[in-house]
Design a protein around this nucleic acid. Sequence first.
DNA 1: GTAAAACCTCAAGCTAACTTTAGGTCAACA
DNA 2: TGTTGACCTAAAGTTAGCTTGAGGTTTTAC
Lengths: 151, 151
Amino acid sequence: MSDKKLIDANLAVGFVAKRSGVKVSTLHFYESKGLIRSWRNNGNQRRYKPDVLRRIAVIKAAQTMGITLEDIKQTLSTLPEQRTPTKQDWAALSKVWQTQLDERIQYMQRLRERVNGCIGCGCLSMAKCPIYNKDDYLGEEHSGAVLLERD
Amino acid sequence: MSDKKLIDANLAVGFVAKRSGVKVSTLHFYESKGLIRSWRNNGNQRRYKPDVLRRIAVIKAAQTMGITLEDIKQTLSTLPEQRTPTKQDWAALSKVWQTQLDERIQYMQRLRERVNGCIGCGCLSMAKCPIYNKDDYLGEEHSGAVLLERD
DNA sequence: GTAAAACCTCAAGCTAACTTTAGGTCAACA
DNA sequence: TGTTGACCTAAAGTTAGCTTGAGGTTTTAC
């Protein structure tokens, strides 16, 4: 009987919630944010096309990559409105997010190198260590307030 | 003038704000969260030890690594209370965060591999593609679905 | 036919990490 | 001494991403 809903290509919100693993309130929320769409039946209840499930899966996947809903919405907006998205359509999205993920990883790796450097050099010097470089600390080793007169 | 404050090892909140690049309100906030400490002068105004500057720098650095204030507070609590922290003390913190950063990077890389696989195979198949693997689409009969488990 | 389950809307609540506002005190300088 | 500017507290506001609650309607099951 629940399969009937799939065959009908006409899904109720509770069904979508169960299948996608998100709460009904989340679906309402996503709709209010323009991330998914629905139409209403005679009794004013939401109905969804089955591909909403993939859409939700993709939203969730992008979120685990650290993409904000706003950015996800942007990227999703490149999908065709008139027809059901194809594999290629979805693949294009993946590419966008993979690029963003790459950038994020690179950023984190640069950060890690810095931390590495800080630990490695052992000095945590104000002059060199980028992770502390805004720290205007008056250290014992170079005492005197004079140092701090610059900037 | 402003150097007097450094020599006194007795910094006013406005000075700390300017030197550290955070707002006065943020310093209040950090204090309320137990991330930094101060004492009061006769007129009830906050005074800071100079090492608060390093502390703030470290908080900011950890934040750029994506560490929450709560976690930062935890880690900062391993610093000695009685004496001014040494290089080694700060280095220990770096190590903790470097580890967390490593984990984060690894997680992102696993994620990227998955996205890669999806694009690579070209099929984005429901059965194989881990990024879409729980997307239940028209057709087969199986029960219960949960989205994308993150490992 | 009726009762429970599912659905609806709108508003408020929640966490994180702050910022802003309001109303008042204290300190620095001419 | 007076007037700025820096400081104080407490509370409310902000953004993201949702969840919860209240009060009411529709659908489904027996």
